[in-house]
């Protein structure tokens, strides 16, 4: 799948989650789709291409996540860079290993949010929210990675069959 389509896929996933949460009234944890996209792009795209896609996804993630003052960007970039360090050791085929590794590395997101919120907005006490919501949030992330990873794998295979993502075509 070309980088621009990966970006469209990411924006569609994030807006779909926010619309789904509004339509169902389900708020506990959510799916953390912004973090999920950082894991998917970090694990399934070459580092340079992935960095470009992440850079373009930062603003939509920042707007739709509702997290103030660039903190969501700090969190998702921390997760993306962490996934980049283990990318070459992961099996190529998307499966439970990637979901587990992605979920564990996704726990850097609340940590990064907590650290940066403490520095940037010390009066906003989010420690309790992070303690209460991180575990359901990471469970939601695992669900997103399983479903979103499978969707992205299917789209990638579609493009590979048509030759659009042949080696060297996009990266």
């Amino acid at each position: 799948m070309p980088p621009w389509l990966t970006w469209v896929f990411g924006v569609a996933m994030i807006t779909l989650e926010s619309a789904l949460l509004a339509a169902t009234g389900w708020t506990v944890g959510g799916l953390m789709s912004g973090v999920g996209m950082a894991v998917l792009v970090g694990a399934r795209r070459p580092f340079i291409v992935g960095a470009g896609i992440m850079g373009a996804l930062l603003i939509p993630i920042e707007w739709i996540s509702g997290v103030p003052g660039g903190l969501a960007a700090v969190g998702v970039v921390a997760v993306f860079l962490a996934v980049g360090t283990v990318r070459n050791r992961l099996p190529k085929r998307w499966g439970p290993t990637q979901v587990i590794v992605g979920t564990v590395l996704g726990s850097l997101y609340p940590l990064a949010i907590w650290l940066s919120a403490t520095l940037v907005m010390p009066r906003s006490d989010i420690s309790l929210a992070i303690v209460a919501e991180s575990i359901p949030g990471l469970a939601g992330l695992a669900v997103f990675l399983a479903v979103g990873g499978a969707c992205m794998g299917w789209l990638d295979s579609l493009f590979e069959r048509t030759g659009a993502s042949a080696p060297g075509a996009w990266s």
Binding site: G69, G70, A73, V77, S116
Partner: peptide
């Protein structure tokens, strides 16, 4: 290239924090 990409991404994040960080409700 890897280092440059990482640096660019981190710089973008720092720019976002510098522009919007610490703003209260209604100030962004």
């Amino acid at each position: 290239r890897g280092l440059i990409a990482t640096g660019a991404l981190v710089a973008l994040v720092l720019a976002l924090v510098a522009v919007a960080g610490g703003r209260g409700i209604g100030e962004d």
